[in-house]
């Protein structure tokens, strides 16, 4: 099974849409699965589940702390709760509930947060989480997953449901290209090498994977062979695969729709500094809040396009060849 073709428009679909569909299927397979939302079910797409399984859907109202607290209690009593709201509120408003009531007792709660990153667009900085991954990655016991497209989201949701323990899943509002087909295989704790390359490695997750693939195509025309690695499993982090790829390239560019502090760029830098130091450039949000605007205009303004990845590749290659 995979993403329903009907949901895809012009080859694009938001990861939140794939989430809604996966939840309904999981609801059929597992009676212990319950879904909670904080008055955003139409936006987070948990409304899809609510329509089919009203007796297993619980709206907590605009009360994110209680959304997580109830989820913890449900998990302690054997349920598999998926709790959804926007990423800013899930990880910010309810951070300490996630820390003390979910991560610390290692309860089986899945936090599927949508509207992550600046691609939220018009709603502006108050609703654009640029730090959610940093917050979640710092928590012991937490698994952190950042799918790139609808197909991967579908698999991520299924993997999260099958996994015993707390999981944070970062989903987006914006329709993004479908990159993978049924043959794609997501595994918690594994990075996927999407294409090999010997000059530079581009390590990305979320919607920046699509941009990384575009960048690699353009770079090839310039005779630069860029490896592209999808690091959807931010935690556990697949150091082994990353090091293996980077040994080949000797230079790396990370790319994420998140602050360069505490997310994928940091994770790669930490791993490589300790194990295999190479030249590194980080594409991401440069320690700043976003603003209102059309998603694609914002992605361009904040340096989150294939063009920005190519510029970073140029910088890192100059450094690599200057020694």
């Amino acid at each position: 099974m995979g993403v329903k073709a009907g949901l895809v428009k012009n080859g694009k679909i938001a990861t939140r849409d794939a989430y809604g569909q996966a939840l309904v299927e999981l609801g059929r397979e597992n009676k212990d699965l319950v879904v909670l939302d904080a008055d955003l079910s139409k936006s987070t797409k948990t409304a899809d589940f609510a329509k089919v399984f009203p007796e297993r859907f619980f709206n907590m109202g605009i009360a994110e702390q209680n959304l997580i607290g109830f989820s913890a209690g449900l998990a302690a009593a054997g349920k598999i709760p998926f709790a959804s709201t926007f990423a800013v509120f899930a990880t910010g408003r309810a951070f300490e509930q996630i820390r003390n009531s979910v991560a610390y007792p290692r309860l089986n709660v899945k936090i599927a947060a949508t509207h992550a990153g600046i691609s939220v667009g018009e709603d502006g900085a108050s609703h654009q989480s640029v730090e959610d991954l940093s917050l979640m990655r710092g928590l012991p016991n937490m698994t952190v997953l950042v799918p790139a497209d609808a197909q991967e989201t579908y698999q991520v949701i299924k993997a999260a449901a099958a996994y015993e323990g707390p999981v944070y899943i970062r989903l987006g509002r914006l329709a993004v290209p479908v990159l993978f087909d049924d043959s794609y295989k997501f595994t918690i704790g594994k990075a996927n090498v999407l294409r090999p390359g010997r000059d530079v490695a581009i390590i990305a997750n979320g919607l920046m994977v699509g941009e990384a693939l575009k960048a690699a195509d353009i770079l090839l025309e310039q005779r630069v062979e860029a490896a592209v690695v999808n690091c959807a499993s931010l935690k556990p982090f697949d150091s082994e695969t990353i090091i293996e790829v980077v040994k080949e390239t000797g230079a790396v560019v990370t790319s994420e729709e998140h602050s360069i502090i505490g997310g994928l760029g940091s994770a790669v830098a930490e791993t490589l500094s300790e194990n295999y130091p190479v030249f590194l450039e980080r594409v991401g949000i440069k320690d700043t809040f976003g603003e209102s605007g059309r998603p694609h205009e914002l992605l361009a303004k904040y340096g989150l396009t294939a063009k920005d990845i190519i510029k970073a590749v140029a910088r890192v290659l100059i450094r690599k060849h200057s020694i």
Binding site: F58, G69, F70, A72, G73, L74, A77, K79, S101
Partner: peptide
């Protein structure tokens, strides 16, 4: 946090 989790258990 305890009362919130307790209510979740009661819901279960």
């Amino acid at each position: 946090q305890g009362i919130s989790a307790a209510a979740g258990m009661a819901l279960a």
